[in-house]
Simulated assay, not measured.
Amino acid sequence: MNDQEGISLIDNGIRQGCIIPANALDKSVLESICESRAIPAERKKEIIESDLLLVLSQDCDIANESERYIELIVASKPNARSRRNNEPLQRTRNLRKLHFKYQDTFWECRVDRISVFPKTEIFAAGLDWSQLQQLPDDLREMLITWRINRYSRAPLPDVFNGVFVSGYLRKGGNELAQYLENHRDDILDIYVYIFPDIEGAERYQVSITALLSAQCSGDFMDECRDFLLKHLEFLHSQDNPLCFIQVSLDDIPDHAAHTLEIVATPEEMTMHDTFVMKRLSVDYLCFPD
């Protein structure tokens, strides 16, 4: 591929988050895309006319003449088994499968249906460029975050996951999860400190810090701090191995040198904080319906 072809892909709308309707491609091209999947068994799963193909590759890689391939993932309408009471899994926690809503239709992506497809074959496909669409920025970000988290999520002790994540955040109707979702524009990330960071300990000392947008108001910072403290106090009072040191200050480890603030802005968190704490992957709470 020459540089002009790479630039032409960008100029013609092939960018990260680009939507290529499957019915805009010949059947032979769709079969070739299926053959480009990493898992042999998945190559037999056909792409049907109602499917969409989403571009995962970054714009700079699409335009780079040294990058000969482009990553595509199929988005299909969820089957009946993926729906409960006629509602899809909108806030999926499954790193192998993602559900999202686009133009009043729900779609499903699976990691095993990613194809690494030659750029030159995009040109050879005779694609009508006018049929291309683009995911809205929030959905594009959701798709890429879902993909990245498969590799970048930090492991946390099973006990913490069982008590805080599965047993609390993911319980249906939990107000803490709803709060994080409602304020996804102000709450950028959740960071966790756990000691000891091993499996099988009888007791874990834990602190949680919400990283807030620098643009959020002082009133929201106070509200968020009080709200999170209420939940930490509740969890601390329960019969479980987690000791929340922001509630029980006498239990702060001598070696703890990270922030103990329950909320902090980017200016207030240090690089040391982000090194010794782990980012809690709760992105699904920040994904809009």
Rank of each mutant, 00 (worst) to 15 (best):
D158P: 04
L212Q: 06
V206G: 11
Q215T: 08
I208Q: 01
G173D: 08
G167T: 13
K171I: 13
N174H: 01
N174M: 04
A214C: 04
P196M: 10
N182R: 15
D189W: 03
D185K: 12
E202R: 08
D189K: 10
E199S: 09
A201S: 05
L212I: 15
V165G: 05
K171F: 11
L211F: 00
D197H: 09
I190R: 00
L188M: 14
G172T: 10
Q205V: 01
A177I: 02
N182L: 13
R147T: 01
P196G: 09
P157L: 00
R203P: 03
I187D: 01
Y193D: 12
S166Y: 11
Q215D: 13
P157S: 01
F164L: 12
V159G: 02
Q205R: 13
N182A: 14
Y193C: 07
Y168W: 10
Q215H: 07
R170G: 11
E181M: 09
D186R: 04
E199H: 05
R153Y: 06
R150C: 06
Y193A: 13
V163R: 09
D186M: 03
P155E: 06
R170F: 09
W146P: 09
E181G: 15
L176S: 08
F160R: 04
A201V: 02
A177D: 05
I208P: 00
N174L: 00
L176I: 11
I187S: 02
L156C: 09
A177N: 03
L169R: 03
P196I: 10
Y191F: 15
V206P: 09
A214W: 02
P157Q: 00
P157W: 00
Y193R: 13
L180A: 03
T209A: 02
F164D: 08
N149P: 03
L211M: 05
E175I: 14
I194K: 02
P155W: 04
R170S: 09
E199I: 06
Y191I: 12
R170P: 01
T209R: 02
P155R: 04
Y168H: 10
G162S: 14
V163K: 09
F195W: 12
A177L: 04
R203D: 12
E202N: 11
N161D: 06
N149C: 11
Y151L: 12
I187L: 05
S166V: 08
F164S: 07
Y179A: 09
A210K: 05
K171P: 02
Y151P: 02
V163I: 15
F160S: 06
Y204P: 15
A177R: 03
V206M: 12
P196A: 10
